[in-house]
């Protein structure tokens, strides 16, 4: 076969391909640049003291201490919010798929969830805080958990909804044909079959929750103490980063970078951990 001579059309084809690959490389380089910056600037100040101690007196002027209060606070906040969100997300996702399927109600609820997903967390935070003023509640771990759960709920529900939707219908139909009620199908067929996806959805929401600063800014408060009660204010890692960067002392800012590195590590561990866990759980589903 004779090779066609290069003409304008093929040149454009080639140029576009190069542009596309170039764009992909740029996106990858941006990620590389972000991780590189955070690691290089955060690592020097990342000491054992940072992750094992709460701030001591004068911590924000460069004296001894660490951000254990913020690490634990963030874990408590995100864990509590995720647990609270599951209680609502799982029933909603199951109800949407088993009882409503694609009816008008389901469309409306999905639209509502998509819209909720788009609401910025600062709006949830401001709304939560104004509600707290009306109710006369102070900033606390519990308030932070509730507002963070609002942020996580749509993410988790839509992700669960999506995995359940992808489940082939025949298993559920077989169970229904044998006389199971819809609830039994949901609990005994759908949940076990979609468990890997559900775990991914939960951890996705957890990762989003632990990194969110705007929602907990007013609602969870900030304290140098390690949280001991739901009714007390609590520190959180994103805010620890933010506040430490806001000080004029270089040592404190350095520790802010280290705190950002800790937060990044936690989020990446959750992200990759969820993929690993989902792959393991995949073994226990019926193919």
């Amino acid at each position: 076969m004779r090779r066609q001579p290069w003409n304008r059309r093929h040149l454009i084809e080639r140029i576009m391909q190069i542009a596309m690959i170039g764009s992909l490389v740029i996106v990858a380089l941006c990620l590389g640049a972000i991780l590189w910056t955070i690691i290089v600037r955060g690592l020097p100040s990342l000491t054992w003291q940072m992750i094992s101690q709460a701030p001591k007196g004068g911590f924000y002027m460069g004296k001894a201490g660490g951000v254990l209060n913020a690490i634990l606070g963030s874990l408590y906040l995100a864990t509590g919010a995720t647990a609270l969100a599951i209680v609502f997300a799982l029933p909603i996702a199951l109800y949407l798929q088993t009882y409503l399927a694609t009816s008008g109600w389901a469309q409306l609820v999905r639209l509502a969830l998509d819209v909720l997903w788009g609401i910025p967390s600062i709006v949830y935070g401001a709304f939560g805080f104004t509600l707290m003023i009306v109710l006369g509640v102070r900033a606390s771990l519990l308030a932070g958990i509730i507002v963070l759960a609002l942020v996580e709920l749509p993410i988790m529900t839509r992700a669960m909804d999506e995995v359940i939707r992808r489940l082939p219908r025949d298993l559920a139909q077989a169970a229904l044909a044998l006389g199971s009620t819809k609830l039994e199908v949901a609990l005994r067929v759908i949940i076990p079959q979609t468990l890997p996806g559900i775990v991914t959805a939960v951890l996705l929401a957890f990762g989003r929750g632990i990194g969110d600063a705007a929602a907990v800014l007013f609602t969870a408060g900030y304290t140098d103490r390690i949280p001991t009660s739901l009714m007390r204010p609590t520190a959180s890692l994103p805010l620890a980063v933010f506040f430490q960067l806001g000080t004029p002392y270089p040592e404190v800012r350095e520790r802010g970078y280290a705190s950002a590195l800790i937060l990044t590590i936690i989020v990446l561990v959750v992200s990759f951990g969820s993929r690993w866990l989902a792959a393991r759980l995949q073994r226990y589903t019926v193919k």
């Binding site: 640049a33 972000i34 910056t37 955070i38 990762g207 632990i210 990194g211 969110d212 600063a213 705007a214 994103p238 980063v241 933010f242 960067l245 802010g256 970078y257 950002a260 937060l263 990044t264 989020v267 990446l268 959750v270 992200s271």
Partner: peptide, 10 residues
């Protein structure tokens, strides 16, 4: 997955 505050630091 990277949290907003980390983007801010970067």
């Amino acid at each position: 997955a990277i949290p907003p505050v980390v983007y801010g630091v970067w």
